[in-house]
Design a binder for these strands. Structure first.
Lengths: 215, 215
DNA sequence: TTGAAAATTCAACAGATGTTGAATACTCTT
DNA sequence: AAGAGTATTCAACATCTGTTGAATTTTCAA
């Protein structure tokens, strides 16, 4: 049943589920924990979303399109600005990463939780193939085409493996495990997405150039 | 109770648990599923390992020391060979990644499952801080010191963020989600660790140089 | 205000879950 | 072969799980 009236408890269920699924995964969270966190009866989750799996998908899809639109706008903007010769590798990667940071700047903790959930899904051999490709692959294809244009000598395999490295570095960042905090003795913070991207962009761009410019 | 006699069923429990935990995570696997997979009674897991959490830890620790030793040998070997000036960034990263590949060459599927489990743990905001640092951080510290010596101009933050990028790219590789297979239309295979490292080593080395040579 | 539709709660189910204590089978030393 | 120690199974528990149908409350247009 589609919602007909504003139902704040419905949103609270999504918010709490988002946070808990990101932290413990699909099987590590019970409907009762979500209901308790949202201060809501257990049955309400089923009423609004049906099965547990459908709630999980609803959480995943709620912000997926917003994120895709934000990224697509950033990519097209830098393509328009670069003109006929096309954007540089740095500009393309920047347009891939910075939208994630803007989402954080709103101060909304929900986006932080959501990105950790995407990291969980993307890194999972079970959920990854089931949920990532339909939601994100089309836009990723656009990015890879843009990168191919910026790196004309690149072989296909090199391009995909390089994107894989970018995706991995990004995924571990979004997961916010706090491991770098301890490893660096507090010099680096998992919560500091801006610092992460400031270092990731030149790192990844240099990697692409090294691997994709030398056939 | 420590095992006093050779008990093949005990090993089978560890093998099956390794595979299932890697695929579905700690909460996504039941003791009964593990017992069924190992063709063993449910109670046997408790008899050998105690609580479910202790079984999980036993699986995680079984190969941790073997992996650490293999990596430490590789690092020390390339340090010895390089002499006083120390190994290059490529050599250090090679000694970090190639042992993972050798573990696969034995043909033992167990190592493949184990590495996917490490990826799951490392990417988890819940398990990462609890299990990774005690098992792997000491050796990671050695690697970072070696990298610092090879990149004398590097600031601490740069060094840690670059290692974070390396760790992320590696983690997604170990997870073997098969996403790159679909994305590349079969040109790249998640199961091909050698191809992954062949591209990852120059990619990451170039990234380190770019970020850590320009203060 | 009334009444219907939507939102929410209540109560309960059937099945699955981790764990345990007692019972049985196995293995090896003497 | 006897027997002690180990490995394994059997049977059962209390608790928790997702889900559902009925009852109740809230919302809002007429």
């Amino acid at each position: 049943m589609a919602q007909k009236r504003a139902s704040p408890k419905r949103e609270r269920i999504l918010d709490v589920a988002e946070e808990l699924f990101a932290l413990h995964g699909f099987d590590g969270v019970t409907i009762r924990q979500i209901a308790a966190g949202a201060e809501v009866d257990v049955a309400l989750a089923s009423y609004h979303f049906g099965k547990k799996l459908e709630l999980f998908q609803a959480v995943f899809e709620r912000r997926a399109m917003l994120l895709n639109n934000s990224r697509r706008d950033a990519l097209h903007a830098c393509q328009k600005e670069a003109g006929k010769k096309g954007p540089t590798v740095e500009q393309i990667i920047e347009s891939f990463l910075r939208p994630l940071e803007l989402a954080q700047e709103t101060g909304d903790a929900g986006w932080r939780h959501y990105l950790a959930l995407v990291a969980y899904v993307n890194n999972s051999p079970y959920w990854g193939p089931r949920m990532m490709s339909s939601a994100f692959d089309p836009l990723v294809g656009e990015y890879i085409e843009a990168l191919r244009k910026a790196l004309p000598k690149a072989r296909d395999e090199s391009l995909y493996w390089c994107y894989h490295n970018l995706s991995g570095a990004l995924t571990l960042t979004l997961a916010q495990t706090g491991r770098i905090d301890r490893l660096s003795g507090g010099k680096c913070l998992s919560s500091d997405f801006q610092a992460a991207y400031d270092h990731m962009i030149p790192f990844v761009a240099a990697g692409f150039r090294e691997v994709c410019n030398t056939p």
